[in-house]
Design a binder for these strands. Structure first.
Lengths: 230, 230
DNA sequence: GAGTTCGAAACTGCATACAGTTTTGCGGCG
DNA sequence: CGCCGCAAAACTGTATGCAGTTTCGAACTC
């Protein structure tokens, strides 16, 4: 048998994480030679991975000038959140009309089991992972793998902003997670009742609330990205 | 000054067209050496382009086995159409709430100017180009470049099926284009009236009608792809 | 004749090299 | 002091070669 994971895959995963976390600063040019040395691979597999990330919207590319980190602007983040609304609301509608009762119940159960952990967690990364997991599971109920794929991509690209947002919340008052899980519960209830409009509406307002928070988070992200170290 | 288009771009465009048109049969393995010779480029840029197409969902990839044409199944096409509903309905809603009157009027005007051409055209490729152009313009009205990007990708991946569908329509009765443009007109009217729900509903039923046709078209596509030549 | 094994051929994965382009930095000029 | 021009350095674009893996087919077994 052979190795299951190629060099390109490894490099791709590393880059994806770096790009999602803005390890490259917005608009920063990416030096292939330097990066290939850091990642322990030659430029050929590195460029293959970079090309994938361009296609996924994590990076940009200019002829004869190379790869760049995507810019970070409020309107870009807005666009991503609006796209999330589109994808997740439709996924919710589809889940209403075709998800199995057992699967809906399983999601509700998941929500219940997670609740204590969710309420007590303070680590933003952990909170975000749980939140993303819920939304991914919900998208699964739609039975549509394209919507799942798109959502996964959008989540990857808003991840950094959402983390900033969660950190901000943690550092201020502690009253955030409770409201959040109730929103999730409301969505699941709508699905369980097979009420597509209600469920989709709950999803929409849930995401739009997040989006408004995110706008503020972008400003903070800016300061973290441009002033940060030393 | 330099050449604006690199070799990779050229190869990418060629491959994208080939993939969209199923010049490779579903699940067919793609031979890099042979393909690089056909396209007049070495394997390095070819592989970079192939990687982009994998990220965009036009091809698949397996470690140590190479690139494959995506499979073609009814459920896959359904997924793409459902994703289109998600994206275009939300784009329509956004257009209602924020497009400039002038831009909406321009789209209505475009529809009017195109109508004679649309009514008289018989070439499926031409019809499809006009249809895609309308939908792309409408997405532009949303002011959301992510939705535009996703729509563009989805259109690329349903392109072949839609062509098959249009060919089928042409070969049967001639009563198709008229119904179509009226649906477009209805959507634009909804936007002009700033009636988001009506416009989105019109868009939804427009695409869902197409989707049902497409399901039948997939069956035809199968026969064309697996039995076809000689 | 169906199934198995094994070696050769074909193909992919990746490093490297070099050509062409862009960027940088320095010296001269206004 | 700033600006232009130019040459060197740095970087990207792509071809090529080789190592490792998979695929194919012929010979062999039952």
């Amino acid at each position: 048998m052979a190795k299951r994971e190629s060099n390109v895959d490894r490099v791709y995963e590393a880059l994806r994480r770096m790009a999602a976390d803005f390890a490259f600063k917005p608009d920063q040019r990416i030096n292939e030679s330097a990066l290939s040395e850091v990642l322990g691979a030659s430029r050929t597999p590195l460029r293959e991975a970079l090309n994938r990330l361009v296609a996924e919207g994590f990076l940009t590319f200019q002829n004869n000038r190379g790869f760049f980190c995507r810019p970070l602007t409020p309107s870009y983040i807005m666009d991503l959140y609006e796209a999330r609304v589109a994808v997740e609301c439709e996924a919710t509608r589809l889940a209403c009309s075709r998800a199995a009762d057992a699967d809906i119940a399983a999601l509700a159960d998941y929500l219940n089991r997670m609740e204590p952990e969710y309420q007590s967690a303070t680590d933003p990364e952990e909170l975000l992972a749980m939140d993303e997991s819920f939304h991914a599971r919900l998208a699964q109920l739609s039975g549509n793998s394209e919507l799942q794929r798109i959502l996964n991509n959008l989540n990857g690209r808003t991840r950094y902003i959402r983390l900033i947002d969660l950190k901000r919340m943690r550092d201020r008052a502690g009253g955030k997670a409770p409201g959040d899980i109730s929103a999730h519960r409301q969505i699941v209830q709508g699905i369980a009742a097979r009420n597509a409009e209600a469920a989709a509406l709950a999803m929409r307002s849930h995401i739009e609330k997040r989006r408004e928070e995110a706008t503020e988070a972008v400003r903070i992200a800016f300061s973290q990205l441009y002033v940060p170290d030393e």
